[in-house]
Amino acid sequence: MEYLLHILILIGIYTILSVSLNLLVGYTGILSIAHAAFYGVGAYVAALMALKLQTPFLLNLFLAVIASGLFGAVVGIPSLRLRDDYFVIATFAFQIITFSILNNLVDFTGGPLGLPGISQPNIFGFEITTHVEFLVLVIILAGVTFWISNKIVKSPFGRLLKAIREDEIFVKAAGRNVSDAKVKVFVISASLASIAGVVYATYITYIDPTSFTIMESIFIISIVIIGGSANLKGSIVGSIVLVALPELLRFIGLPNSIAANIRQILYGALLVIFMLWRPQGFLGEYKFGKESAARSKK
């Protein structure tokens, strides 16, 4: 039972990550591979606050969101001037830098040893310790993330984002500040991703830099694409499929060392299959690879 709850909690965490990334990749059409970095910023800010200053959970959550948003602005403002592939490389660089800092700033982040003993959330005296309580917490936070994201994509701002994805020049000619809108959505996406980090850190009570690598970013991108770009519900479906599917491998009885490798193969294979035959993912409207290929030909 605990095992099942654990999987559900992970699905919740990845729902937060993929819904927030979908705002960028799916709706605005800008591919960032630094999402795990913002996830990590959230986790480390919350963990360090809890360990060093013993501040309460909600304050940590708030500060993590703000810190991650600021990082988003610092990264986004210069790198969003770059176009398509160059932007991807810029986010790649930021991802690597973040990992290196977490890994090497030993006095502060614990380096490769990580930060053990992070206290579990305490919300106005109510301790969250059991799996069921964590599941409730993660559902609430994923719900908030979904609600905010849904509000954004259904608003005129969301329409602007979709238009930017299709034709920036048209949006510019309509008198809109394209780079401004991109920075805003990048900051929002980064802030929302940090929520997942806070939940993860307080749930596992131990974090180390290997949870926030480029592989993690690519995993989140896979969820968005396979679930369906530009469809928020698709990201929930994607999280369920990609988190639960590898767990099934356990029941086949493969030894752990092989199962872990097969998992990587599975993600890669799924991504290739979807790109070839169903680029819009399970529920998406926006055909990820095809559209951007058509655009770059122009």
């Binding site: 509000k151 608003s155 701002f157 602007l160 008198g175 809109r176 929002i188």
Partner: peptide, 17 residues
């Protein structure tokens, strides 16, 4: 057409919520 109107307070993030 809606994209081209200029009175879009719905394009300001704080207003959306």
């Amino acid at each position: 057409i809606l994209l081209c109107f200029n009175n879009q307070q719905g394009e300001e993030l704080q207003n959306i919520i």
